[in-house]
Design a protein around this nucleic acid. Structure first.
Lengths: 152, 152
DNA sequence: CACAATTTAATTGTGCACAACTAGATGGCG
DNA sequence: CGCCATCTAGTTGTGCACAATTAAATTGTG
């Protein structure tokens, strides 16, 4: 029996990182097409999903849901505000915090967005159970990678 | 039995796209840490992997391996050239084409890169077989998404 | 051969991810 | 109370992804 060489690992590694990268970008591509009608980018859509589900919440909480910091969210929210989909207001109680909420127009957009998921699921060619299994696997991977990133 | 509503789909969809996005970014984070010593970003590392494996090749071919176009590769390659890791030369036979190859310094970097894959695999907490299975699943997903993107 | 269609890189412009830093508000502690 | 550590957004700078366009070389066809 032969030990796995560094060369072999290099090849394996290439395949897993290529695969994840490619899948992620392919997903982005499909979302781009589907969301074009709504005038949203994929990260903007994720923000709207959180706002539709949770209502008004501070940028900080939004960032926790999406694992994004203010460096990404501030300009993105500014664009959504310019588009008339969200409002940002300094909290009166804690002036460090900025509360974000969907406008009337932003809430109205939700009706059209209801069609999106079905089209995405269809594009994957996977059934609901397969998606659930893959998602669970990816979540395991994420938490392993996150904890590994801490000790380094 | 109840049909799956658009609301339910919206929730499911949210989870799968969140999961894939999070996994992809978690991977990027680990690579960022591991590659810091080598002075490479993750996409630059992917380019070097292809060059190490295939030797000299035109930008076009490089892009096919990585699913990237010249809009991404041109500036990236320029940075690698500034760092002294690659050389770019107009092909004599076909002056539309630019041949890219690793320099001595770029080839030398490979020795240090041999340690990278082991560290990444370790960070995932998955064994070789699990990674292989996940990769296969992701590749299925990618080709399904790619063909779905075509008819739209 | 002449000329139109195609191919290949590069450029431009928009948007996202993330690190590093700044500014202002808050809360705790002596 | 006064001050300092912490917290929250925002800003700046770098790099990547991708669409659209441009420029130049090549290929195919009449």
């Amino acid at each position: 029996m032969s030990a796995t060489s560094a060369e072999d690992f290099l090849r394996l590694d290439q395949q897993i990182c290529f695969s994840l990268n490619a899948a992620s970008r392919a997903f982005n591509g499909v979302y781009r097409v589907v969301l074009k009608d709504l005038g949203l980018t994929y990260p903007q859509y994720l923000v709207m999903l959180v706002l539709w589900e949770h209502g008004q919440l501070p940028v900080k909480k939004l960032g926790e849901h999406l694992r994004l910091d203010s460096g990404t969210l501030s300009p993105l929210l500014k664009r959504l505000e310019t588009a008339g989909l969200v409002r940002r207001e300094r909290s009166a109680r804690d002036e460090r915090s900025v509360e974000v909420r969907a406008t009337e127009q932003g809430l109205a957009l939700r009706e059209r967005a209801l069609q999106v998921p079905r089209r995405i699921v269809a594009a994957t060619g996977f059934d609901v159970e397969e998606i659930r299994a893959l998602r669970a696997r990816l979540d395991e991977l994420t938490s392993a990678l996150d904890s590994a990133a801490l000790d380094s």
